[in-house]
């Protein structure tokens, strides 16, 4: 199992490194969205709940791009068939894909967060607030990665592929949106970063756990043929 996950993950990351596709597109899209927010909101800088909302929506929409590409290459180039022929647990694919998507999201955030702070955020972020933001984003990434893998695996088998991804994933990610917005609002306050609401970290962890177990239980049915 571990070797299978390792091999699949290496393949996933090598593919992205040799022919970068998802990550650059997601990163570019997220920066463009920030500019879009600047003009749509007609604000030079944002703080508090507005800042949390901008970051949240930008991250989620960028994630949708990654989710809809996640299984496309495997399906079109026959990678999925090859995987199904190999005598390994199918959960390995779920774990590898989720970890890869999580890594993509972290890479995108490495561009998105500095760009957000630089372009739009009013109050400065100190190191402590930055660390707290990173913690929240990691929990969010885990949830988005798991749900995204599940939704991506469903959508890739349909004719409406890219159409279905946001329709399925965004309602499912609504608790993540709520928690992300609530948890990051105190970090972006104009009066200085407040403490992190622990309750929302708990909700995020619970969400990750529930959907992790669900994906573990259901993924086998999605890669049968």
């Amino acid at each position: 199992m571990r070797r299978a996950v390792g091999a699949l993950l290496r393949k996933e990351l090598r593919l992205e490194l040799r022919a970068p596709q998802s990550v650059p597109a997601m990163a570019l899209f997220s920066v463009t969205t920030l500019v879009l927010f600047h003009f749509a909101l007609q604000r030079g800088e944002v703080d508090g709940d507005l800042a949390a909302g901008v970051l949240c929506v930008t991250l989620l929409f960028a994630a949708m791009l990654g989710v809809s590409r996640l299984f496309v290459a495997d399906r079109e180039e026959g990678g999925l068939d090859g995987f199904l022929l190999a005598p390994v647990d199918r959960t390995a694919l779920l774990v590898a894909k989720a970890v890869a998507l999580g890594a993509f999201l972290v890479a995108v955030e490495c561009v998105l967060v500095p760009a957000f702070v630089f372009l739009l955020l009013g109050p400065a972020l100190d190191a402590a607030a930055f660390a707290r933001l990173a913690l929240v984003l990691l929990l969010v990434d885990a949830g988005v990665a798991v749900v995204g893998t599940l939704v991506g695996a469903i959508a890739v088998q349909t004719r409406a592929r890219d159409l279905l991804v946001p329709l399925l994933a965004l309602p499912l990610l609504m608790p993540v949106v709520i928690a992300l917005a609530k948890a990051t609002t105190p970090l972006f306050l104009a009066a200085g970063a407040g403490s992190l609401p622990v309750r929302w970290l708990g909700i995020l962890a619970l969400y990750d756990l529930v959907f992790g177990l669900l994906a573990y239980g259901l993924f086998d049915f999605l890669v049968e043929d």
Partner: peptide
């Protein structure tokens, strides 16, 4: 698979929105 995922999502969603 969708029906099961969505069924499990219902209580989680109610919890998050209520909080």
């Amino acid at each position: 698979v969708f029906a099961i995922t969505a069924g499990a999502f219902v209580p989680l969603n109610f919890l998050a929105v209520r909080l």
